[in-house]
Design a protein around this nucleic acid. Sequence first.
DNA 1: CTTGACCTTGACGTCAACGTGAAGCTTTAG
DNA 2: CTAAAGCTTCACGTTGACGTCAAGGTCAAG
Lengths: 134, 134
Amino acid sequence: MRIGELARRAQVSGRALRYYEEQGLLTPDRQPSGYRDYGEADVETVRRIRVLLAAGLPTSIIAEVLPCMVDAAGPGGALAPGCPELLPHLEGERDRIAAAIADLTAAHRLLAAVIAATPAMGATPGACAPADGT
Amino acid sequence: MRIGELARRAQVSGRALRYYEEQGLLTPDRQPSGYRDYGEADVETVRRIRVLLAAGLPTSIIAEVLPCMVDAAGPGGALAPGCPELLPHLEGERDRIAAAIADLTAAHRLLAAVIAATPAMGATPGACAPADGT
DNA sequence: CTTGACCTTGACGTCAACGTGAAGCTTTAG
DNA sequence: CTAAAGCTTCACGTTGACGTCAAGGTCAAG
């Protein structure tokens, strides 16, 4: 398929797909016209990229892990065995994500506490922060 | 205390502290010399700022929630009741954080799966990704 | 007084993941 | 045939949270 279709099916912009290629995350074939020619598997690959990006991993890291999860067949996204040389690196990233989850959880608790401490709305002096003119 | 001490005690750069002031997160007094003069409570405030920043909240939002958690006395960071007008906004942020946690958790699972699928190190072809010259 | 550490305000640089034209080729619809 | 999508490669713009000089003022020690 061409870039537009993949963009629609994977819910990303064409620009993003070109960027991913530039970063080595995707390497589509080319039609004689020069148009990019993506395969079906790329849809799933892009989804994985989005998951990892959403987790804050930079494209350079994703480029390393992607070939380790080439494909397989499964709804949950099964994986193939990968490259043991990157293992400590991957474990480091995994731990960084765990730490990030801890941070977010702390922030979540903080916000939840603030929300819980908020007097219910409707009956208050009203003078707090300027609240900014929106 | 002056900016250098706060920087050391709160584990941030002086530049960051000036930036926080610029964004309205901190408003230290000034000594006649023009030097910033921070109070003890600012150490904790900066820690909270860091937690929320680490969670991906922009400084503009943090500026809104900070006055809602003015202070109190507690090891976990107790809170004062806040501004009900911001409540829906805060709930939105809280949900966004929850979504981010979900993303991170998904990525964590993905990485953990890759790691688990990695053949243990030591006995493999070795040809995988170029591994990049570092 | 001099040195040196620490402080001040600008103001430009950085990094990541794209957005957004610009100028031109290709393919599809009619 | 023409017009309209859709594609191509540059290449600069954006956003956020700072880093990093630059050009000084201030303060404690000797």
